[in-house]
Design a protein around this nucleic acid. Sequence first.
DNA 1: GCCAACTTTCTAAACGTTTAGTCTAACCGT
DNA 2: ACGGTTAGACTAAACGTTTAGAAAGTTGGC
Lengths: 338, 338
Amino acid sequence: MATIKDVAKQAGVSVATVSYVINGTRNVAPDTAKRVRAAMEALNFHPNAVAQSLRTRTTHVIGAVVSDISNPFFATLIRGAEDCARENGYSLLICNTSEKLENELVYLQLLSRKRVDGMILAPTGKNDELIRDLITRGLQIVFIDRKIDGVDAPAVLSENEEGAYRATRYLIEQGHRQIGIILGLPHVSTTTERLRGYERALTDNGFEIDRALIAYGHSQVAEGKEACLDLLDGADRPSAVFATNNLMTIGVMMAIHKLGLSCPQDVSVVGFDDFEWAAAFEPPLTTVAQDPYRIGYEAVQLLCEYIHAHPHSQDAIKGEDRRIGVKLQIRGSVESIK
Amino acid sequence: MATIKDVAKQAGVSVATVSYVINGTRNVAPDTAKRVRAAMEALNFHPNAVAQSLRTRTTHVIGAVVSDISNPFFATLIRGAEDCARENGYSLLICNTSEKLENELVYLQLLSRKRVDGMILAPTGKNDELIRDLITRGLQIVFIDRKIDGVDAPAVLSENEEGAYRATRYLIEQGHRQIGIILGLPHVSTTTERLRGYERALTDNGFEIDRALIAYGHSQVAEGKEACLDLLDGADRPSAVFATNNLMTIGVMMAIHKLGLSCPQDVSVVGFDDFEWAAAFEPPLTTVAQDPYRIGYEAVQLLCEYIHAHPHSQDAIKGEDRRIGVKLQIRGSVESIK
DNA sequence: GCCAACTTTCTAAACGTTTAGTCTAACCGT
DNA sequence: ACGGTTAGACTAAACGTTTAGAAAGTTGGC
């Protein structure tokens, strides 16, 4: 593969001159430039980005660490991130942690070694020490979807508490009194925020919080289903269930189906995180719609802006969290029982 | 950030020695090694992968070019690819083409400049010249999901023709005589292969091929819906529709719903490409299930094996296409009309 | 005590760029 | 005709590694 030297030789100039015409960083006489361009063309020369990165100390790569890219939420988040990255001349390196601390650790080290210009990260849990360390070492990090308290990096998040609040309030307005909730992973911020919204809606409306109605489904279809089975199994079963992520919503629907109940006649359901085909379900699902595309897009935007404004800065990116609005998407999975 | 020089100085050895202990490429006296490791630890040294790449001419990065990572099919394909890549010490660089030739072109150039060790590519259409050029320049390419005739690179594909054949035959067995088909993008290989399977099933069973029953939905929900509306609008409407990808299947369901018809009573539907929640639909969808995870996994496997066996080879990766089996997943969207 | 063989370490050149600094020649005003 | 300015091109160091080859030191056989 041709190098800048070959081009220089072919065009009868120094490598510096070639570099100047590639990057337009200094004046080059028009006919010299033409000769150089002809040589590049003839040799089919494409600058080696690795060498450029080594010299300029910037890779134009952003790492994206998520738990599972095959989850539609993260898939469209990544899509947004990638679109924004491309617009700014960056590429995205994908890392799936499968919610394992250990994988996350390995990936964070890897991205650091690869000298990515920044990363977006949906933290799995308590790798704080390492993350803090990376930040002090000059790696730019933006949290997505979730955050870690006490780590000084901006985050782009959904209005989790508000969304859960509205979902719960809506169920209350429809006359529901016994409202179960299926929560995700206990130690991630989305879970605690959504729980807070649920609890606030209940107390704001004068209800007690009943621990028996709170279940954990670990953000998975199967576990969400199990948790819901437990919930619906009890003596006085809730008339409504709030599932706090997309996968667990599916699990809830399966559980209802399995028990021979029907939605919304026997049990009303609200999900968190809308997805493209929620409307095609029977019944069409009522959900709290997030905007994952925008989360990804804005997180990368934040990174790019900062990198552009402070190139090679060792200082951590600052700025407060950005909350992306949610919307209660009312369809057909909730019945009024006034 | 500490470099190998800093470590060498701290440990009182040459950089070469440090390199040897990092990579274990030469004997180093045990206590020297210990000193070096201590220095690395103390300085929190992590080798610069960019410099390593420049020197060793291998980046340990694989490019993944797909049309849309937010499509569940590609999302899980990528998931499989990433899992395999990680197991082999590689990372994945993601590129969304949005089915645009122009984007594909830009990305192919980019990946070539970044000197990725290989790439998996779902070709959008007719960028043959460039792709051929990249291959001769020594870039290792494996096609996924689709292929381009006449380009000498292996592909990992579903049994498209067989899947379409079985779907169509199944509909015929259930007594359907007028079977519409909604095809994807005209110039991609999956489309032609699936059409071939459909036609073969018809002729094998003594039916004529009726052009009026063949529609194009360009692989999108909205266009699939439109195409289906056209199909169902005619005088003698088909009793069954075969939608040849996941998005268009959704479009077909929407179209049926919109016309006030119901599935499967009025129109039977078979989709191509199963997805996680197809079973949760009402009716549960009968589809030809592909295994995108395995497609991604095996494609990367192929790359890694080749790269491992022929490091730095300029010769294009060879080997015949690998077909991943499909399975007709019978659920509830087809009615028998015997 | 010497030579061979081996072990351990070092020196220095490469990988392919960018870029600060220098050189040369042309041009201009006086 | 001369010094000052400027445009255009070049030289060489640097980015952080790897690695072939050389050097120095150790061991062992005789």
